[in-house]
C-alpha cells in the first residue's frame, strides 16, 4: 500500500491543487499585463484594463441586469427552498421521496435540457423572453442548493425548543420570529449568498432565455470573440472572482457558526 501512504498522497494533493488553481492564478496575471495578447512572457504591469471597465457602458448595463436576476433569484429560491427544507426535515408525508426527488432533479439535469425545455414552453405560450424568464430558470437550478443548505439548518433545529415556546404561550408567528428564525438565520443568509453567486455565474440558461437584455456571463461570451477585448474580460473576471470568494467566505462562516450553535459536525453539514 505504498501508493496510498501519507507522503505520496500529500505530493499528489499538492499537484492536484496546482491543476485546480492553474487557470485561477492566470486570471489576475493577464488582467494586470500591458500586452493585449493573452500569452507569456508578461510585458509589464498596468491597471488600464480595470480603469477601462469603469467607462464601458454596455458592461454596466449587463452588471445591472445580472444584479437584478441574481438578487431576485436568491430571494425566490431561498424562499422556495426554505418551505421544502422545512417540510422534508420536520414532517413525514406521503410521496415525500418522489416530491423531494423531483425538486432536486435540476441538480443533475444538464442545463441545456432545462434551458431548451423552458424555451419551448415559453415559445408555445407566446411569452416574450426577458430577464424574468432568466430568473424563472435560475430559481429552478438554485432551489436544490438552497434546500441542501437549509436542510442542515432545519435538521439541527431542536423541535423541543419550538414546542417549549408554544407551551409558554407564544403564537405561531411569535415562535417563528423569536425561536425558529434566529436559529436558521445563518443558514438563510448562507443560502441567499450561494444562490446569488450561482445565478451571477450561470451562462447556459441565461444564453437561451434572455431577450435583448444580456446578463454578465452572456456579455463575457460576446466579448470572448474579440481578441482586443480579452484583457478587459480578464480584469472583469478577476473582480468577479474576488466578489464570489468574499461572498463564499461569508456564507461558509455563517453556515459553520449555525452548525456549531446547533452542535452539528461542521465538516459534513450541508453536504
Amino acid at each position: 500500500m505504498k501508493w496510498l501512504s501519507s507522503k505520496w498522497l500529500a505530493v499528489y494533493a499538492v499537484v492536484y491543487m496546482i491543476f485546480l488553481y492553474a487557470p485561477v492564478i492566470l486570471l489576475p496575471l493577464f488582467a494586470f499585463n500591458t500586452s493585449t495578447i493573452i500569452a507569456f512572457p508578461l510585458s509589464g504591469f498596468t491597471t488600464e484594463w480595470f480603469v477601462g471597465l469603469w467607462y464601458t457602458d454596455t458592461l454596466h448595463i449587463a452588471l445591472g441586469n445580472s444584479m437584478f436576476v441574481g438578487v431576485t433569484t436568491a430571494l425566490l429560491s431561498t424562499l422556495l427552498g426554505a418551505f421544502a427544507a422545512r417540510a422534508s426535515a420536520r414532517f413525514a408525508f406521503p410521496g415525500k421521496t418522489g416530491i423531494v426527488g423531483l425538486i432536486m432533479l435540476p441538480l443533475v439535469l444538464p442545463e441545456i435540457i432545462i434551458a431548451v425545455a423552458l424555451l419551448v414552453m415559453l415559445n408555445q405560450l407566446g411569452m416574450p423572453l426577458s430577464l424574468w424568464t432568466v430568473v424563472g430558470g435560475h430559481v429552478l437550478i438554485c432551489t436544490p442548493f438552497a434546500i441542501a443548505i437549509l436542510s442542515s439548518s432545519y435538521r439541527g433545529l431542536d423541535r423541543e425548543l419550538e414546542e417549549a415556546s408554544f407551551d409558554l404561550g407564544e403564537s405561531r408567528w411569535g415562535t417563528f420570529r423569536r425561536v425558529t428564525l434566529p436559529l436558521v438565520l445563518p443558514g438563510v443568509i448562507s443560502s441567499l449568498l450561494i444562490t446569488f453567486t450561482i445565478s451571477l455565474d450561470e451562462f447556459i440558461i441565461a444564453f437561451f432565455l434572455t431577450g435583448t437584455d444580456v446578463t454578465l456571463p452572456v456579455y463575457i461570451w460576446s466579448q470572448l470573440r474579440f481578441p482586443a477585448k480579452l484583457p478587459s474580460v480578464m480584469a472583469l473576471g478577476t473582480i468577479l472572482l474576488l466578489v464570489s470568494v468574499v461572498l463564499l467566505i461569508i456564507a461558509e462562516a455563517l453556515r459553520r457558526r449555525s452548525a456549531a450553535r446547533q452542535g452539528v459536525d461542521t465538516t459534513l453539514a450541508g453536504l
Binding site: F91, F93, I99, L102, I103, L140
Partner: peptide, 24 residues
C-alpha cells in the same frame, strides 16, 4: 403532520411542476 408537510412543500412543488415537469 402529513397535511402540514404537504402544505409547506406545495408552493415549491407547484413551481417545479410548472417550470420543469410541464416544459419537459
Amino acid at each position: 403532520e402529513a397535511g402540514q408537510g404537504l402544505r409547506l412543500i406545495s408552493l415549491t412543488l407547484a413551481y417545479v411542476l410548472v417550470m420543469l415537469a410541464a416544459p419537459l
